[in-house]
Computed example of a mutant assay.
Amino acid sequence: MHVVPLPALADNYIWLLHDGEGNAIVVDPGEAAPVESALRSRKLTLRAVLLTHHHHDHIGGAGRLRDDHRVPVYAPDDDRIEVATHRVKDGETLRLEQPSARFDVIAVPGHTLSHIVYVGEGVLLCGDTLFSLGCGRLFEGSPAQMLSSLRRIASLPGDTLVCCGHEYTAANGRFAQTVEPDNAALKQRVDEVARLRANHRPSVPATLSSELACNPFLRVDSEGVMDWCRQHGAANDPVARFTALRSAKDVFSA
């Protein structure tokens, strides 16, 4: 399966997955135009749309794509996603015939209460739950819910490609380095991202193993993150440590 990030809106990525026979699916199309352009240029036929959560910058183009291409739209069970034709939930497996693909559905409340991710074909299609070197803001869920969701993701194979919904990696890296300034893997990743962005290339996908080595929100039990949390009065409990990290990131600017 070929995996292509399509830039959209201000800093979103729509994920295009296609086989070698011209069949494609798209994930979280915040607008339709980048998808239509990619389908034409690559001579692909759209077969399905997958949605992770209800925010408009992830579903804004889904209705047009559904109607113009007559394709199913898979989404979590959330009435705010009116464009859906099929609802999927935690523990289910989505099987597609064209392209031939299988995705496990995992519920990941935190960013929103109904957020889901799709895992299969070597990729994690994670919307706004996990970012490279960061995680999503808590608009609806609690810190405990988000930490639990991230831990479910962290248990996936290390070579899984993290396909997230935004190009936030450089900014996330600047915050992460304030938490773990001596993390050599993080420094290497930050340098890599700087080179990629200087050449106008996307910083994602990244492997989950890289995120486990670098992303502070996946490392709340690591010594480096615990040291930072001790300095911020939140060392005793994993949820408290995660809460302190997320609160600090929410007001961080550099």
Rank of each mutant, 00 (worst) to 15 (best):
Y118P: 05
V71Q: 05
L46Y: 10
A176G: 12
V105I: 15
F103I: 11
Y118M: 10
A107Y: 01
G173E: 05
H56D: 13
C126S: 03
T52K: 00
R151G: 06
S132V: 03
F139C: 05
T160P: 01
V105W: 04
A101I: 05
D57P: 01
T93F: 04
V179P: 12
S114E: 14
D57G: 01
H111A: 02
D78K: 06
L125G: 02
D67M: 04
F131G: 06
F131D: 00
R80F: 00
G158D: 15
G165I: 12
V83E: 14
I59M: 00
F103H: 09
R47L: 02
T45V: 15
S155F: 00
H58M: 07
I153D: 11
H69T: 13
V179K: 03
E140P: 07
A62E: 03
E121P: 00
G165F: 05
D128P: 08
R64D: 12
F103S: 07
L94I: 08
G63W: 06
F131S: 06
A84S: 13
G60P: 00
A185E: 15
I116C: 10
G158S: 08
F175R: 11
P72G: 08
A107V: 04
D159V: 02
L186D: 06
G60C: 02
G127R: 01
A48V: 08
L186V: 11
L51H: 06
A101N: 00
I81C: 06
A101F: 07
S114T: 14
L130W: 07
E140F: 07
N172T: 03
R87K: 14
